[in-house]
Design a protein around this nucleic acid. Structure first.
Length: 429
RNA sequence: GCGGGCGUCGCCAAGUGGUUAAGGCAGCGGCUUGUGGCGCCGCUAUUCGGGGGUUCGAAUCCCCUCGCUCGCCCCA
């Protein structure tokens, strides 16, 4: 096989699949618009250092999953593995202090060098939303609600929202001390992976999938018990407001997001029908990130939704394309000229008008129209062209008799009338 | 990076050592060169992911390799 193939973990999205993507994206963007969230676009390529500092060198994402290379000027560059760091960078660089409150979204490809599997690719797509400058617990609730509503608007069912709090820096370091003490005592009962994490990232041990370790962890100290009054109050407020909004959630004390910059609220939305990569949305508060990256201290919260996983979950209804409204069968030198002009006229009525360019026999062109399930058809051949007219008729799929009408080329009024009564009436506007 | 499953036409597949690689869908052409569906007829893999080996003989057995897929790790 000497043909070219796409790179591992990447896919071609073909026209048929893109209908669903476009519909999903449209619904998302509309909901964002209604929530007055504004779009931001940052480069896909950034200097590697940005991600090292923004995401954390110790994380798997950065330490073993980045697409990193030297450019021709020997600068180390990386394809973005996620969007938050870039957005933070862009805001700092463009003067965050002049616009301290911003609700932003972005959508686009991300890159992570991993083994592909169901719902996971090396190039994948995320919708990210970041509320920057917002500190109140109500911004946490609003952003969780936004994620929830987007998924609901897409008609996705059987979703589980899990929430947790990581407290502020002081809470967390108090907890960590106690937790480390406990870990020391119980070290030998833990699985190997978890043992390694004691040094590297002890919080992540809470997140283990090892059944044995999970059981042992039931007796470990809990982070909630180390929250300051203020942090606790914050968390309780969020839960209360979610209840008020009737958004069902489950508390999960073991929910610890993988990236270093999170504080307070962490949340995740999962679906059982996704296989082992069940998370469709992950997010949380990151009050430390922007100052950590050299900006003025700015609280922020955000989430990311994996579009591939969203597509898997979205119903088939979103995959249906708009049918051809009118197919123009045309043959003969003069007729073909008139037909092309006609096709433009029809598109001005916001119709999907397809002009047959094959020059094939009438029979062939009719078959094509039928295959496309075109709602109507125009026929223009030498006979019609000679009389400066064309034939138009509805084109039912059951092949029943359909009345046809002859319209003169110049008779725009008659054409418009026909189009309005036969095609535009049925359109959902 | 580590484990399991799988690779035969654009898609779904039969074939499991003996020579013509079924069949279905899609596609193309014809019956019908100015009229749709259905039907009928015909065409479409010198080759079974790639390389090497065993054998008189390989899609079928062995080795290597590549790819896909599912899971682990991690995450969206």
């Amino acid at each position: 096989m000497n043909n070219f193939k796409n790179l591992r973990g990447t896919v071609d999205l073909l026209p048929d699949q893109l209908i669903k993507w476009q519909n999903v994206e449209k619904i998302i963007v509309e909901q964002l618009l209604r929530s007055s969230v504004k779009e931001i676009r940052t480069p896909i390529l950034e200097m590697t250092e940005l991600f090292l500092r923004g995401i954390g060198e110790g994380t798997d994402v950065v330490s073993k999953e980045m697409y990193t290379f030297l450019d021709r000027g020997d600068r180390s560059c990386s394809l973005r593995p996620e969007g938050t760091a870039s957005v933070a960078r862009a805001l700092i660089q463009n003067g965050i202090s002049t616009k301290p409150f911003q609700k932003l979204w972005y959508m686009g490809p991300m890159f992570r060098y991993e083994r592909p599997q169901a719902g996971r690719q090396r190039q994948f797509h995320q919708l990210g939303v970041e509320f920057v400058g917002y500190e109140s617990f109500r911004s946490d609730v609003e952003i969780i609600t936004l994620a929830w509503d987007i998924l609901e608007k897409l008609g996705i069912k059987e979703l589980n929202l899990e929430i947790n709090t990581l407290g502020d820096n002081t809470d967390r370091s108090n907890f960590q001390k106690a937790f480390l003490k406990w870990l020391e005592v119980n070290k030998n009962s833990l699985d190997l992976d978890s043992q390694k994490r004691i040094e590297k990232n002890p919080l992540r041990i809470l997140d283990t999938k090892n059944v044995q370790t999970k059981k042992i962890l039931e007796d470990a100290p809990r982070l909630v018990d180390f929250l300051s009054d203020k942090s606790l109050k914050r968390y309780l407020n969020i839960k209360e407001q979610l209840k008020l909004l009737k958004i069902p959630y489950v508390e999960n004390f073991h929910l610890v997001r993988g990236l270093d910059y999170y504080t307070h609220t962490a949340f995740e939305i999962t679906s059982g029908s996704l296989g082992s990569q069940a998370t469709v949305c992950g997010g949380g508060r990151y009050d430390n990130l922007i100052s950590l990256m050299g900006g003025t201290e700015t609280p922020a919260i955000g989430f990311a939704i994996g579009l591939e996983r969203l597509i898997i979950l979205s119903g088939n209804k979103l995959g249906e394309s708009r049918e051809t409204d009118i197919y123009i069968v045309n043959k003969g030198i003069h007729a073909e000229k008139l037909a092309m002009d006609l096709s433009r006229k029809l598109r001005n009525y916001d119709l999907i008008a397809e002009l047959d360019l094959s020059g094939a026999s009438f029979s062939k062109q009719f078959k094509k129209a039928n295959k496309l399930k075109s709602k109507s058809i125009i026929v223009i051949g030498d006979d019609e062209a000679f009389k400066n007219q064309f034939i138009i008729r509805l084109f039912n799929n059951d092949n029943s008799e359909n009345k046809e009408e002859t319209i003169s080329i110049e008779d725009n009024i008659k054409l418009e009338k026909w189009v309005k009564s036969n095609l535009l009436l049925h359109k959902n506007l």
